[in-house]
């Protein structure tokens, strides 16, 4: 539940990523939401599951598409004090991926752990 601090309300936010990057704009614009949220001193969580795990796959090269490769930004989140990044183990395994394929430090959690975490949130943002 939310807690009151001298600075105001602090809520548990989770930004849930379930879609692969580039095919649609959702991954990029959720990342924009995450970055903006850093300015509000909230308890921010970022989750990667289902095809969202591809957002943090190493080695993204978008030169031939003309898209901006925004994947390095996930590594910059730490600098904004956004450090609670979670990736779902089952989602990685289903896609033949492992933690070694990821470009950012994330906590690998089981589906059950991810589900429990989701249930603890005050605000869940998805796209």
């Amino acid at each position: 539940m939310e807690e009151e601090f001298e600075g105001g309300i602090v809520k548990k936010f989770m930004f849930v990523n379930r879609k692969a990057p580039y095919g649609t704009v959702y991954a990029l614009e959720v990342l924009e939401m995450v970055l903006i949220s850093a300015a509000f001193d909230q308890d921010v969580h970022v989750a990667f599951l289902d095809d969202g795990v591809y957002q943090i796959k190493k080695g993204q090269d978008t030169k031939d598409l003309g898209h901006k490769n925004f994947s390095p930004t996930y590594r910059a989140l730490e600098g904004y004090d956004i450090e609670k990044l979670f990736v779902e183990r089952e989602s990685l395994e289903e896609r033949g991926l492992s933690e070694a394929d990821l470009l950012v430090d994330v906590e690998v959690v089981s589906r059950a752990e991810m589900a429990k975490l989701m249930g603890e949130m005050d605000v869940v943002m998805t796209a």
Binding site: I9, K11, M33, I36, V123, T126
Partner: peptide, 17 residues
């Protein structure tokens, strides 16, 4: 700005997407 969305998440009792 997008900050208005985060603010809505903070101020509203429920956020529905």
């Amino acid at each position: 700005g997008l900050g208005q969305l985060i603010e809505a998440g903070i101020q509203a009792d429920r956020m529905v997407t």
